[in-house]
Design a protein around this nucleic acid. Sequence first.
DNA 1: AATGAATGAGCCTTCATTCAT
DNA 2: TATGAATGAAGGCTCATTCAT
Lengths: 222, 222, 222, 222
Amino acid sequence: MAQPETRPESRDERRTPTSREQQAEQRRNQLIDIALDLFSEKGVDGATIKEIAAQADVAQGLVYHYFDSKEALLLAVIERHGPFAPLRVLLAQAFSQPIHEGLHTLAHGVYRIMSERKKLLRIVLHEAMLRPEMRQILLGVRAQLMTTVGAYLDTRIAQGELRSHNTEVTMHTLAVTIGSLVLAGFPPDPFLDDLVDTLLNGISAVPTHGVQPDDTQTKTNA
Amino acid sequence: MAQPETRPESRDERRTPTSREQQAEQRRNQLIDIALDLFSEKGVDGATIKEIAAQADVAQGLVYHYFDSKEALLLAVIERHGPFAPLRVLLAQAFSQPIHEGLHTLAHGVYRIMSERKKLLRIVLHEAMLRPEMRQILLGVRAQLMTTVGAYLDTRIAQGELRSHNTEVTMHTLAVTIGSLVLAGFPPDPFLDDLVDTLLNGISAVPTHGVQPDDTQTKTNA
Amino acid sequence: MAQPETRPESRDERRTPTSREQQAEQRRNQLIDIALDLFSEKGVDGATIKEIAAQADVAQGLVYHYFDSKEALLLAVIERHGPFAPLRVLLAQAFSQPIHEGLHTLAHGVYRIMSERKKLLRIVLHEAMLRPEMRQILLGVRAQLMTTVGAYLDTRIAQGELRSHNTEVTMHTLAVTIGSLVLAGFPPDPFLDDLVDTLLNGISAVPTHGVQPDDTQTKTNA
Amino acid sequence: MAQPETRPESRDERRTPTSREQQAEQRRNQLIDIALDLFSEKGVDGATIKEIAAQADVAQGLVYHYFDSKEALLLAVIERHGPFAPLRVLLAQAFSQPIHEGLHTLAHGVYRIMSERKKLLRIVLHEAMLRPEMRQILLGVRAQLMTTVGAYLDTRIAQGELRSHNTEVTMHTLAVTIGSLVLAGFPPDPFLDDLVDTLLNGISAVPTHGVQPDDTQTKTNA
DNA sequence: AATGAATGAGCCTTCATTCAT
DNA sequence: TATGAATGAAGGCTCATTCAT
């Protein structure tokens, strides 16, 4: 939740907004937040402009004063509730820690960020299955994570903290699993720590690594 | 339960079906399969009965001769394309193998089963976000997997092949990650082997473990 | 209820019907009787051929083997359950009685006949509001009653049993009121006797008739 | 309750309605009145929203802007054209007259009120045969009449104007018969006066009457 | 900024009827 | 006689969107 109170872009404007402008901004945000709720509960198609307007206690037409179309409203929802900023903060924090600690920080942080945006997450995932554009948004986030976290893991491999492995797999697994936990409503503990632990140490009892079992493994990563 | 059966002719009932019954069954399956396609492409709500009928080249009304409602058609799709039978076969096969082999068999098998049912997977996941009943179906499959695979892993822990750990985490991670690969259209190789390898052996380079069974836990996190 | 068991017209045919013909006749009557029920419960439009067939446990198409259309089925219902015969019997009986007795006999007889055909009555009245043809049927019955009963009353006027009055009013009032009782589910007693009494003697206290205020009431009837 | 009010302009609310509100009310009433016509001609089920909209020269969807459903439209029709207010006026008027005059006033008044609402009458009677809720409406009106008119008649009995009798029978007979006349399209004269006369004085010739009230009676019948 | 009347396309569903088997 | 697959025409209702006020 802990959501932006004003539109992120309009943050620090020079000119003091008139009360009329303030009202408009509030109304706009109100509509966006109602849309967030309804879109996530019923899907974008399932939610109706009529209902959004009704919950804001305004006429249907007013929604179209602020947004050109339902589609535009959806984009506004995504923009306003996007996870990019907090994600950047988290990554910076986690990357400064030793790997065994950083991975836990990362997991819990991602869980928190996703939890706070659970509604948005549902919307985007849901729509991504139908609309290629939404799929792009998702892939974009994935790519960003992959790049930054990938670099992080590669560093640690270089430093000998991690063995050489397919970091994409690790990253993808982590992200997807956490997402599933959030969506399913599972609490973070003890799942997250166990997950990170498994990723770090595996579940095999055998003396292990160097990893003999079958050296199918492979690839140093892409 | 029921599997595609490729063609209705392959049924071995006592009574030989009349050609009319055969035709009816074919029509029914045809409608189901068209629905599978359209539901997965556009979502259940996005797909229209009209379009389904059109693709089958029949009148709209005929769809309602075979199915009471769109909802009933959806259930028929799920029943016809459900993964239960092949899943049982796979589990039996995997469980007879040593763990390092069995887990790979399992992963590839699950990937294959999901791939073959990618459309159904999309439908169910998509609908599960809106309809609690669909969510139940999903949770049902998860529970079944958890039970059987959990038993499998527990056996291996008892036999000392695996260290004592939260098997639910392993299972969930495996299933969810594979599902995401299928949906995202990623090929199984080399992702799957790397994933299993990571789960078995971890990514940590540290000499480490034996990783004594339980002091694993941890938390250092934020 | 007490309904015809075979089609009234086909009563006494010379040739013994084959079992095939008997079966057909039974089926036909079964369909008619089911239609009677459903038409009266849900209206002709509200009842569906599908449901009629289902209650007879036959295929929809079979209904069209026996009746050309829903309309034809409706006519068959009316024909099979028509009140003409018993009405003739009743009138003959009532007319041979002195007026004070005959009018009670008539009222109770009409009540009984209508009661036994309550379903048909509902159907015809209901449809008469929409379809002119049905209205004709109704007006036909009314005309027949008016003629016969009118003649009866006129005779009694001529004989000095009744005062000269508008017999059409009396007849209409009697018929319509009884019909309303039947449809509303009111029992015949004591309403019918009171009604006939009122028609015969009025409600005015003024000098009046033989008829002392209160020993007026009730039954002499059959 | 609410009566046609002929035109919305005649409302005396505090706030002057804006022209848009006036237009909306007109449209609403227009739709109701068209529905009244069509419902009575073809039955509620037989009439289509499409046709109602077409006659108002508006889009189908607009009907649903004013009424939640066809059912709601039906209720609006009943409310707008209900007979309660004029019925109250009539009863007050009739009850202040001596019985022989009052009963004629009542009969003609009821005939007039029903005639003015012939369409509504047809609708309600028609629907009452299928829908229990409509039956309730009918029974409600009947109960109200029974109470008020019953009290009226009882008073007159107490005052010696009428003999003691079953007033429910008289009332029911009067109401039902008048209703049938209206529906059948029969003119009020001379039927109504003859009817009231018969109820008051009966048709029996026996010693009897001055039958003075007014010797309107007439006809020996057709 | 705000209203809400109005549109028009489309959707799910129902049903009487036909016809090959 | 009997079946039931198939048709085609509606029908009630919803909804995103527009626009005059």
